[in-house]
């Protein structure tokens, strides 16, 4: 533990997004190491567990993102097909209580109650959850199921990346060093449409997922006209389940075959044995969760 080293870090506290972007651009241009801090629920743990800093070493500058009003808004984008824009710095506690989120993105609101416990939910943010890059991130699985657009901002402007193109490998992404994850844009779920959030963990609160499953669907004439699904802790990145999605979208629900669904899920995931679970149990859960939701949609699987 090197909690004592925390006293050696400096914190910059920009009050506007443009100020934060300018600072980050200058740091990157001069090659000086920089950390971004939103709710701090991962960062403070990581710094506390990091090896002690060398005697004369200058630690990276920490940039506080918690005072940027641009990262705290939840709004409906009327100009953009009523998509909903969620600031990357909105806490899970706010997200779970937000009327617009509860109504239009019920999976996201429900998931927010399962992140850590209330003390983590009050500080943790969707942006931080994506930025740290853990494949176990519950919030990121929910974003992936909605095919959220990730909004990145830098001095060069705003850039929009579809979720499927954001993660490039274990804890790697297309985010450039001078970019800040500022918001997510999500398509509302048609009222009354089915959705699923299931987290399999050692206990209900304060547990990192062994497997988490997020899915949304909109049905029409015995088929899914919209089907988005993702899993956490099932691959080196958030599993976006392309084969499973293609199978469900391409088959009338009544004709869907359980074993074909199992094969698609298996093709989409690569679970491992680790401290939280086993490859075999994870694979079992993934099959059961996918079949369970498809049964809810009317498939005989």
């Amino acid at each position: 533990m090197s909690v004592a080293d925390l006293a050696r870090y400096e914190l910059a506290v920009p009050r506007a997004l443009s100020e934060a972007c300018a600072l980050l651009a200058a740091r990157v241009a001069s090659g000086e190491p920089t950390l971004l801090c939103a709710g701090g629920t991962d960062l403070l743990v990581e710094l506390g567990m990091a090896p002690p800093l060398a005697a004369g070493a200058r630690p990276p500058l920490c940039v506080d993102l918690s005072r940027l009003p641009e990262l705290r808004a939840v709004e409906r984008l009327e100009r953009d097909g009523a998509r909903i824009r969620i600031g990357a710095g909105v806490s899970y506690l706010t997200l779970g209580r937000h009327e617009l989120v509860q109504g239009a993105l019920p999976l996201l609101a429900r998931m927010s109650h399962d992140i850590g416990g209330p003390t983590i939910q009050a500080r943790g943010t969707l942006g931080g959850n994506l930025a740290t890059g853990s494949p176990a991130a519950d919030g990121v699985a929910a974003l992936a199921a909605h095919d959220a657009t990730v909004v990145l901002t830098s001095v060069r402007g705003e850039r929009r990346v579809p979720f499927a193109g954001f993660q490039t490998g274990y804890k790697r992404s297309v985010r450039q060093a001078d970019e800040i994850i500022t918001a997510f844009e999500l398509e509302p779920l048609a009222p009354g449409s089915p959705w699923c959030w299931r987290k399999v963990g050692a206990r209900q609160a304060q547990a990192i997922s062994k497997v988490a499953f997020a899915a949304v669907a909109e049905l029409e004439g015995g088929r899914a006209r919209r089907f988005g699904a993702a899993m956490a802790s099932m691959a080196p990145v958030t599993a976006t389940l392309p084969a499973t999605r293609a199978l469900v979208l391409g088959t009338p629900l009544a004709d869907l075959d359980g074993e074909a669904l199992d094969r698609a899920v298996a093709a989409d995931t690569s679970p491992i044995d680790d401290i939280r679970s086993t490859r075999a149990y994870r694979a079992h859960c993934a099959r059961a969760l996918a079949r369970g939701f498809l049964r809810e949609l009317g498939a005989a699987v």
């Binding site: 925390l6 914190l11 506290v13 801090c37 709710g39 701090g40 629920t41 403070l44 743990v45 920490c62 506080d64 918690s66 506690l93 209330p118 003390t119 983590i120 009050a122 500080r123």
Partner: peptide
């Protein structure tokens, strides 16, 4: 912290101004 429960071990004092 502003009425919400938080873990004080994960809050940098610089965010408390």
């Amino acid at each position: 912290l502003d009425g919400e429960p938080v873990n004080a071990c994960l809050v940098p004092i610089g965010q408390c101004d």
